Amino acid sequence: MANTPSAKKAVRKIETRTKVNTARRSRVRTFLRKVEEAIASGDQAAAAAALKAAEPELQRAAGKGVFHKNLASRKISRLAKRVKALGA
């Protein structure tokens, strides 16, 4: 258990940050799920719209340090590739 006042404050800050990061991660996963569902339905227009909405959320989470930047780029790239394949 934290003994010093600074350690106690650090624990409070960590708890707050954890809640924010958890909410942000959940939000991104919801956006990604919507893209996956649109791809599964075979509707390219809906999939493209969902991807357009999901991309800034993923980038924002990567910028805040919730996800690694490469992970966000990789996910966007792979989803874009799959959405493009629907139209072909």
Rank of each mutant, 00 (worst) to 15 (best):
A49S: 14
K52M: 12
M1A: 15
L51T: 09
T22Y: 00
K34D: 11
S73K: 05
Q44R: 10
F31P: 00
N3K: 14
L58V: 07
T18L: 08
R12P: 04
K52D: 12
H68Y: 08
K9C: 01
R12C: 10
D43G: 05
I76M: 08
R27P: 03
H68S: 06
T16G: 02
Q59N: 15
A47N: 08
A48I: 09
I14S: 09
R33I: 12
T18S: 03
G63E: 02
I39D: 12
N70K: 10
F31A: 14
P5N: 02
R17Y: 01
E37G: 13
T16S: 07
L32G: 08
K9A: 11
K8Q: 12
R25C: 01
T30W: 02
G65T: 02
R33G: 12
L71Y: 13
A23I: 02
T16N: 09
D43S: 08
S73I: 05
S73V: 04
V35I: 05
E36G: 01
I14L: 08
M1Q: 11
G42T: 11
A62W: 02
T18H: 02
S41L: 08
K52C: 06
A23Y: 01
R25D: 00
K8N: 06
V28Q: 00
L51W: 10
A45F: 01
G42W: 05
S6Y: 03
T30E: 05
T4V: 11
A23N: 07
